[in-house]
Simulated assay, not measured.
Amino acid sequence: MIELDDLDRKLLGALARDARVSTGALARRYDASQPVVWRRIKRLREAGVLAGRKLELDAAKLGFGVTVFLGVKLATKGRVSLQDFETSVSAIPEVQTVEHVLGMYDYRLRVVARDISDFERVLRRRIMTLPGVGDVEANVLLSEEKRPGPIG
């Protein structure tokens, strides 16, 4: 674990909100020199705290107006069924995330679809036919607020 001071936390919060912000802008915002900010960000990257850069697509603007979280309980347990399920579900383009979780369900999936009937098609024809699928619970996303996470 890396020790973080106030400037590190401020930089992480700012980068979590907008990873494209320049070191010059961050330096002005937090009353520091640009080389100091650059070195801090480099240190955070080398320590693995900043684990990469990713492009975020707007699913709604691409025609995917519905997001559903699925809780999936496997009918059979065991290493083979977990591996088979993970491999199969990861191949479905509408499935955005696959999370192996502890609790009532074995997996939590984030699925996007054009509309509810498109989601029903994906559920019936793709997800419910996967190896080992037992119980499924769907929760439709109504709204979402993105938070940078616990930094400070």
Rank of each mutant, 00 (worst) to 15 (best):
E56Y: 09
P150Y: 12
T97L: 14
R28G: 10
R147L: 13
F69L: 08
S117L: 11
V98T: 06
D5K: 01
L82D: 12
A14E: 09
R124K: 13
D58H: 06
L12P: 08
Q83C: 09
A32Y: 14
R20Y: 13
L70A: 08
D5P: 03
V136L: 00
D31H: 14
L130W: 11
A25Q: 09
K77P: 15
F64D: 11
F85A: 01
S90H: 10
S33D: 07
K54Y: 14
V122T: 07
P93G: 02
L130V: 11
M104R: 08
R28L: 12
I41A: 03
V95A: 04
D6W: 08
E145N: 15
I127H: 03
G48H: 07
S143H: 10
T76V: 15
T23I: 05
E56R: 12
V89L: 02
K73C: 05
L142W: 15
A25V: 05
G48R: 07
F64S: 09
R126T: 01
G65Q: 15
I41Y: 01
A91C: 04
S143F: 08
P148T: 04
T87H: 08
A60K: 12
A27W: 10
K77I: 15
T87I: 08
L26P: 15
F119S: 01
E94K: 13
M104H: 07
V112G: 11
M128H: 06
M104L: 05
I127R: 03
G152F: 06
L50E: 00
V80R: 13
A19R: 10
R9F: 05
I41L: 02
G48M: 06
A51Q: 10
S117A: 12
T97Y: 14
L7H: 02
F64A: 09
L141C: 08
S33Q: 09
E120N: 06
R53S: 13
V133D: 01
Q83T: 11
E145C: 15
A59M: 12
R20S: 15
G78V: 01
V133Y: 00
V136T: 04
V112C: 11
E144R: 10
